[in-house]
Simulated scan of single mutants.
Amino acid sequence: MKTVKIGGTNWTSSNVALGIMRMGTLAVADCARAIEAAHAAGINFFDSADIYGNDPVLGRGSSEIHFGQALKQTGLSRDDFYFQSKAGLYANADNKITRYDSSRDHLLKAVDGILQRTGVEYLDSLVIHRPDALMDPAEVAVAFDKLQASGKVRHFGVSNFNPAQVALLQSALSQRLLVDQVQFGLKHTGMIDYDFHTNMTDDGSINHDGGLLDYCRLHQMTIQTWSPFQYGTFAGTFINNDRFPKLNDQLAQLATKYQVSKNAIALAWILRHPARMQVLIGTMNPTHIADSAAGSDITLTRQEWYDLYLAAGNELP
Rank of each mutant, 00 (worst) to 15 (best):
R60N: 13
V158G: 01
K86D: 07
W269R: 05
P228M: 07
L168W: 01
F156I: 01
G282I: 02
V260Y: 07
Q181V: 07
N92W: 00
R60Y: 08
Y309E: 10
T25M: 10
N15Y: 02
A235I: 03
M1R: 12
L186C: 06
R154K: 15
I128E: 00
I20T: 11
A27N: 13
A110K: 00
G157L: 02
F196Y: 14
D249Y: 05
V142S: 14
G61F: 06
K187D: 05
G119R: 06
D291C: 05
H39D: 10
R272K: 15
A264V: 12
A91H: 11
S150I: 09
A235D: 12
R60W: 01
R272Q: 15
R99E: 07
P131Q: 01
Q303H: 12
L108C: 13
S102N: 15
D79K: 13
A38R: 00
D132T: 03
D136W: 01
D145I: 02
L168A: 14
I223R: 03
I192V: 15
I65R: 13
Q69E: 15
W305P: 08
L169P: 05
V279T: 14
P137D: 05
V279I: 11
D203P: 02
P274K: 09
A294S: 14
H188W: 09
D132K: 01
L178K: 07
D203T: 12
H208K: 12
L169Y: 04
F83P: 09
A138R: 12
A141C: 12
R22D: 13
D101P: 04
T9F: 05
R99V: 04
A264R: 01
Y231T: 06
S102M: 09
R78M: 08
Y194Q: 14
C31H: 03
S103T: 15
N92L: 11
G204E: 03
G211H: 07
G282T: 05
L147D: 04
D249E: 15
Q303F: 04
T25H: 14
V279M: 06
A141N: 12
P245D: 10
G232M: 07
N54F: 13
S62I: 10
H66C: 11
